[in-house]
């Protein structure tokens, strides 16, 4: 039963999510909201628990405690394919297309099994062509997916996810390995997708990209949320500075400002 969605309403609500591996709490009481229509960034230093959190959101891992509510439905503990079907699409950090298939066929998988489930292979292929045009990959539709450049493989990964007609798109470190111009192009593409009506959650290391791309940012450190706000707020936040540059630097910088 799909809820009525309006811009600004929370489409994803994460409440007190917890996940431990042995004694280590990879995700520790994490709560935040993703609002319809926005681009939300999720950042944090190495080992902050971003990957675990993404796995919890997409059903790849089950939380020990807490709740994930997507589009008004409690999806906590759902299997990955159900969450995918419900409208949460995800790209993977290490981009590995389905090697036995052409570019178009890769994208068709998204159309066949995603939220906008098309039941005929022909309809899925048609949708694939639409999407490939959106990401500027139309010329490579018949190519083997193993023969693409890194940038094109990332576009393909994006296309697969969009073909599923998602409500929310989770981009997992999509900028990794791209250089400056490619990053700019990627930012444009993501904005275009967002304007097309897809809410986006971006997990990233490339700080410049995140600061330019996101409307709001959530910062994780050691499994906990330590800050939330606009890019400006977050980059001035003492906890964030400490997490990224070290306690000593933070002390110095903040001490110097007489804070």
């Amino acid at each position: 039963m799909e809820a009525q969605r309006r811009i600004g309403d929370p489409i994803l609500r994460v409440a007190h999510l917890r996940k431990s591996f042995g004694a280590l709490a990879a995700t520790d009481n994490v709560s935040f909201e993703l609002r319809e229509g926005e681009i939300l960034g999720l950042i944090g230093p190495n080992g902050a628990g971003k990957t675990t959190l993404v796995n919890l959101l997409t059903g790849v891992a089950e939380p020990d405690a807490g709740r994930v509510e997507f589009n008004g439905v409690d999806v906590t503990g759902w299997a990955p394919h159900r969450i995918g079907r419900a409208g949460m699409a995800r790209t993977f950090q290490v981009v590995r297309p389905f090697a036995g298939m052409s570019v178009r066929e890769n994208v068709a998988i998204g159309a066949l099994f995603g939220r906008g489930q098309r039941h005929s292979v022909a309809a899925a292929r048609a949708r694939a062509d639409e999407v490939l045009a959106q990401v500027d990959l139309a010329a490579l539709a018949d190519r083997s997916s193993s023969a693409l450049t890194l940038q094109d493989r990332k576009r393909l990964e994006l296309a697969k996810a969009i073909a599923a007609d998602p409500l929310v798109l989770l981009l997992d470190e999509v900028m990794a390995g791209l250089h400056a111009t490619e990053i700019d192009e990627a930012i444009d593409l993501v904005r275009r997708i967002n304007r097309g009506g897809v809410t986006i959650l971006v997990i990233e290391h490339v700080m410049r990209a995140i600061m330019r791309l996101c409307d709001r940012i959530v910062v994780l450190d050691a499994g906990r949320v330590i800050a939330e706000g606009t890019p400006q707020d977050v980059s001035a936040n003492p906890g964030v500075i400490k997490a990224y540059l070290g306690a000593r630097w933070a002390a110095r910088e903040l001490g110097a400002e007489g804070a």
Binding site: T58, G59, V60, A79, P80, H81, I83, G84, R85, A89, R90, F92, R96, P97, F98, A99, G100, M101, E105, A108, I109, G110, L112, F113, G114, R115, Q117, H119, S120, V121, A124, K160, A161, A164
Partner: peptide
């Protein structure tokens, strides 16, 4: 559709799952 799903599973089962397979 079954065939597409099977090849997707072979190539990257986790990616197939999150796409709804």
């Amino acid at each position: 559709r079954l065939g597409y799903a099977l090849v997707a599973i072979r190539e990257n089962e986790q990616a197939a799952a999150v796409l709804g397979v």
